[in-house]
């Protein structure tokens, strides 16, 4: 069931520089605030809470004081060949061919969770509970994103509503193309160390298209053929190796398949 990247227009993607990222969590909070993500009483239950942008803490396992830690922010990978989209029985998640964003239609989702089984990144969260906001906190909810109801799956949308408003703004100004800085997801904007770069991977003028050519750029689980549009940068070899599964004695290069061009 391998399909080639179906995006025809823009192919929005992100490059996260792990050497820059301090794992402070500001992106996660910006994301939650921007997208009306609900708050559980017990947010320590990472298998049930809603976190569109989860941060992993990875270590090289070396003894003190040679220990190294990398904080790895994991939004939805917005795969070019998303495993989740074709499996949805109710067409509640789609891969937009204009921008390459994998969207989720909350009002159509029936909550079967097949997409979650399909996604190897755990990027999708199911609402096990009614969306909860501590008393009074529903006052900060943004009308730009509808809060989800219990029983549906939700996930990072690359702040799709921001793309929509940037597009309408451009449309009213008679432009067809968006400038690089016109559409930026909340996490990218919030990152205090500017570790995340965002843009159209198809557009040679956008910094991301340059950054992904960096030899230290990699993606998570490239071998599965999901064609993620979230790239990472690091100079740490152990981290690059931890991004995918490798057989013993296999080098990263052998393990990687060449990136497919979108068609």
């Amino acid at each position: 069931m391998k399909k080639r990247d179906s995006a025809k227009g823009a192919r929005y993607g992100m490059v996260i520089d792990l050497d820059r990222c301090t794992g402070c969590g500001t992106c996660t909070i910006a994301c939650a605030a921007e997208n009306n993500v609900s708050v559980l009483y017990d947010e320590s239950d990472k298998t049930r809470n809603i976190n569109w942008l989860k941060i992993y803490m990875l270590t090289n396992g070396k003894a003190f004081p040679h220990t190294e830690v990398v904080y790895l922010p994991r939004p939805c990978m917005q795969c070019g060949n998303p495993p989740c989209v074709p499996v949805c029985p109710a067409t509640a998640t789609t891969n937009d061919s204009d921008d390459g964003i994998v969207s989720q239609i909350y009002t159509r989702c029936i909550g079967c969770r097949y997409c979650m089984a399909a996604c190897p990144y755990h990027a999708r969260d199911f609402n096990w509970f009614d969306p909860a906001f501590p008393k009074g906190m529903d006052r900060y909810l943004s009308p730009e994103v509808s809060p989800r109801m219990r029983g549906v799956v939700e996930k990072c949308s690359f702040c799709h509503h921001r793309l929509m408003s940037a597009k309408s703004k451009a449309y009213f100004e008679g432009r067809r193309d968006l400038r690089e800085d016109e559409y930026i997801p909340a996490c990218v904007e919030a990152c205090p160390t500017q570790a995340i770069t965002f843009g159209d991977l198809n557009n040679p003028k956008h910094r991301v298209s340059e950054l992904i050519k960096n030899p230290s750029a990699f993606r998570l689980l490239e071998r599965l053929g999901t064609e993620p549009k979230v790239y990472y940068l690091t100079t740490k070899d152990w981290m690059r190796r931890m991004a995918d599964n490798y057989l013993q004695g296999e080098s990263k290069k052998e393990g990687n398949r060449p990136e497919k061009k979108n068609g």
């Binding site: 969590g25 996660t28 909070i29 939650a32 708050v39 947010e43 803490m57």
Partner: peptide
């Protein structure tokens, strides 16, 4: 509460 989201489950 938002900050609780960012604490790892090996912290709390």
């Amino acid at each position: 509460p938002f900050l609780n989201k960012t604490l790892f489950d090996h912290q709390l």
